[in-house]
């Protein structure tokens, strides 16, 4: 178990690697279970991949499985991350590094903005399918939260996040009756 998990501690496309290892190669859990676990961890705070590996570890070996799975996933990648950062901290003032960073930092920003949009996109599309008013609610939560962050310097981010979440929940409440009608 530990060896299996450790072997896929690295790599960028970690989710794809994990799926191949635990579903296809070792048959620890079924493809259906894997999909269910993934949907579930999307609703849990924190890094989704960690949540997934915790559920898999729990299913295979209980508390011991959870610890081994976490250790296996985190130990290699955390070690490498710390070493990379330490190496970077040593050389960060070298001229070459400074000029390379003047390219890498804007690129990270560009990639990050794309990723932010990419994550929000399915949610926006889902609301659009549900009708015009859910789409307007979703769009204004997305843009409104950005504006709130950009223009209010005294409002804690957590307040913006949680109020958007509560607004999202409230916006669905009338749907209960509509769904009941359909059924």
């Amino acid at each position: 178990m530990r060896l299996g998990v450790q072997s896929f501690g690295g790599g960028m496309a970690t989710l794809a690697l994990i799926r191949r290892a635990i579903v296809d190669d070792h048959r620890w859990i079924s493809p259906e279970d894997f999909a269910r676990y993934w949907a579930l961890v999307l609703m849990v705070p924190g890094i989704n991949l960690l949540g997934l590996i915790i559920l898999v570890g729990n299913k295979i070996g209980g508390a011991k499985g959870v610890c081994l799975a976490l250790f296996g996933l985190l130990f290699p990648s955390v070690t490498i991350t710390i070493l990379l950062t330490a190496a970077y901290a040593k050389v960060e003032h070298a001229h070459l590094i400074v000029s390379a960073l003047s390219g890498v930092i804007p690129a990270t920003v560009g990639i990050g903005i794309f990723t932010g949009g990419q994550i929000a996109w399915p949610v926006l599309k889902d609301s659009w399918k549900r009708g015009l008013s859910p789409a307007i609610v979703a769009g204004s939560l997305f843009i409104g939260s950005g504006i709130a962050e950009g223009f209010s310097h005294h409002l804690p981010v957590v307040v913006i996040l949680l109020s958007c979440a509560v607004l999202g929940a409230l916006s669905r409440l009338p749907l209960i009756s509509q769904r009941a009608d359909v059924n």
Binding site: G112, G116, L141, E149, G150, S171
Partner: peptide, 27 residues
């Protein structure tokens, strides 16, 4: 319960909206 999903979606949307603004500020 649809509001459970709405809660998560509202959270996800605001995280992304704020995320983009902060990245712009970082730049």
């Amino acid at each position: 319960h649809p509001s459970a999903e709405g809660f998560i979606q509202g959270l996800a949307l605001s995280v992304c909206g704020i995320f983009i603004v902060i990245l712009t500020l970082l730049l």
